[in-house]
């Protein structure tokens, strides 16, 4: 169900006279949650910044096609996720083509600590998350960090709730054993 505030935002986004101001509100409202969602996937700030910018540009260009049937958050997450996954795929392709070395790139992100703040345990958790396969990492992040409901995740990713639950369970298990193995 679409909330009243969100309904008003959608109406303003669809009105050419109010569109730009409404878009500004949309960016302010969702920039952080989308940034961290993207950042957890692409790891580097510069990459997250590029992907976030492209995400909002895509949103702007497709405002007319958004009918408001789904929640804005779901729509935004879907675009952000697609953008981030395409970015990662492109990066992998470039690495395969020899334009960039994927190992160097990953090494760079791992060794530089990717501007990760906080205690050592946070670094360890990040390293554990990075060992997960891409899709499992995505599911883990959305559930663990964003507290997203399986139903919402299913709308964003187009995967059944059952598969998401199973995926999250596997991810948690893997992370726990990673942490157990290296935890002092």
């Amino acid at each position: 169900m679409v909330a009243t505030g969100e309904k008003e935002l959608i109406l303003s986004l669809q009105n050419p006279l109010e569109r730009e101001a409404a878009f500004g509100r949309l960016v302010i409202q969702y920039q952080k949650v989308l940034y961290y969602h993207i950042r957890r996937l692409v790891l580097l700030h510069e990459d997250a910044d590029d992907v976030l910018q492209n995400t909002f540009l895509k949103v702007w260009r497709n405002l007319d096609s958004f009918r408001g049937d789904a929640a804005i958050k779901t729509w935004l997450y879907r675009i952000a996720t697609n953008e981030a996954l395409s970015f990662i795929a492109q990066k992998k392709r470039r690495a395969t083509d020899g334009i960039e070395s994927l190992e160097n790139d990953l090494g760079h992100s791992m060794n530089q600590g990717r501007d990760v703040s906080g205690e050592e345990i946070q670094h360890k958790l990040q390293r554990a998350v990075e060992t997960l396969p891409e899709r499992q990492r995505l599911v883990f992040n959305m559930r663990y960090y964003d507290d997203m409901r399986y139903e919402e995740m299913s709308d964003v990713l187009g995967v059944t709730e059952g598969a998401l639950k199973a995926s999250y369970h596997h991810a948690v298990k893997k992370i726990e054993s990673y942490l157990t193995g290296i935890h002092p």
């Binding site: 990760v116 703040s117 345990i121 670094h123 958790l125």
Partner: peptide, 19 residues
Amino acid sequence: PLSAAPILSSIPKNSSFTV
């Protein structure tokens, strides 16, 4: 699954990335 993951559960859910 977090109930069976004591170490993970003990870690605060802070955003560890700096901006």
